[in-house]
Design a protein around this nucleic acid. Structure first.
Lengths: 216, 216
DNA sequence: AACGGAGTTCTTGTATACACGATTGTTGAC
DNA sequence: GTCAACAATCGTGTATACAAGAACTCCGTT
């Protein structure tokens, strides 16, 4: 537990939302949350204010908080922005790569290879996250890294759905290989282009997303 | 005043920070703010939690809230990300331009021309903001529009400093012209490239920024 | 004179109390 | 039977009270 209850609650509720325990559109009753976590309403309210500021929930005055339902189109828009930011991270990574970042990317890339070979999509899901984080870090822009990490978190549930699609894991891994090559070769523009394609969801991948969102 | 005091306070304090009334590093005392605005500590705390979540202030547990001082390097990173997002907005605007957006861009562009010709850098500062907002809107991506607007707000003070640099207003206007041409011609990649260059701060413009940040 | 420690004060973190608006349920009229 | 108005209830918004940690002061020691 964090040093103050408010932060802890924020993380706790955020996780519950991202793990789909609190579903989009669901009402978050302050009193219910307070008793559930064994605290008073005050820290609950503070946690909710923060989640509202982040954009995970919406607090309608005098009418309580509800989990925001982004809807397929907005999720698409979020992936679009994510693709752009990851592209920038890749560009910077290629230009600013140093020994430590190179090794971090290699290591996470290796782990992705193993879990992809094993066909373990849950393991790949986790390793993939670490791989992307290694690229953010290699870009050496704290602000960009934070923005990427935040958006990545918010898109986590949808990313997970995507990996369930047939062959997506192996395709993803092949794309990683090309990305690593471009970054290690110092070809920033190529890394950017590849990452944009890797993260963005064009064509049939968009329909896959919509389909999986509809059926959960 | 907004319907609830918390929101109102958030906006109020946010403006005070962005207008440099509350300076970076300054301590924000809850009790002082509460008496100043004539409310209790509760809504003040809620406002502060939100500002913390947005990243404008930092709340250190049991040690109060302080205004975050981004520092030149981090401001540079923020401009870097902003350039990328604006580039994407330009690309989308060129691809999705419709009559209404076209007219909105034309109108704001025209206002920029007038204030640039008059050499009124304060007026230009405002018109420039509207011009960029028109481009975000033309991109037809609500999420991107929100992200752009939020970053734009946070970078406002620095943008203002930049315009004070000699000839920056007229240079900026010339760049606007090229951007409008690219968007109207439907050349998305060109619009992206130009907007990246327009918003980003490379070379001597970075030193200008650092210099003006140091002397305020 | 400088440093360290104990006590005091001040501020934050959490709980509780109260007020007001929204929602819901019930009753009566058409 | 349906709709509207009023009442009761429930939940949020704000204030205040209390607890606990951090900072500051003052005094003593080296």
């Amino acid at each position: 537990m964090s040093e103050n209850v408010g932060r802890w609650l924020r993380d706790e509720i955020e996780n519950s939302i991202l793990s789909n325990e609190f579903r989009p559109g669901e009402r978050l009753d302050e009193m219910v949350l307070a008793t559930r976590f064994g605290v008073s309403r005050t820290p609950v309210r503070e946690a909710l204010m923060q989640l509202d500021a982040i954009g995970l929930i919406e607090i309608r005055p005098r009418r309580g908080a509800v989990v925001i339902d982004p809807g397929p189109h907005r999720v698409y828009e979020m992936f679009e922005v994510m693709a752009e930011l990851e592209g920038l991270a890749g560009l910077l990574a290629a230009r600013r790569l140093d020994k430590a970042s190179r090794e971090a990317i290699m290591a996470t890339h290796g782990r992705c290879e193993r879990s992809a070979a094993a066909g373990d999509s849950d393991a790949y899901y986790y390793d993939n996250e670490e791989f992307h984080k290694a690229i953010y870090a290699a870009g050496r822009s704290d602000f960009l890294e934070e923005q990427c990490a935040q958006l990545h978190r918010r898109l986590r549930p949808y990313r997970r759905l995507q990996l369930r699609v047939r062959n997506r894991v192996s395709t993803s891994y092949l794309e990683h290989c090309a990305i690593v090559d471009a970054i290690f070769a110092g070809d920033g523009e190529e890394a950017r282009r590849l990452l944009r394609g890797h993260v963005g969801i064009q064509g049939e991948r968009f329909s896959d997303l919509v389909a999986s969102m509809a059926t959960r």
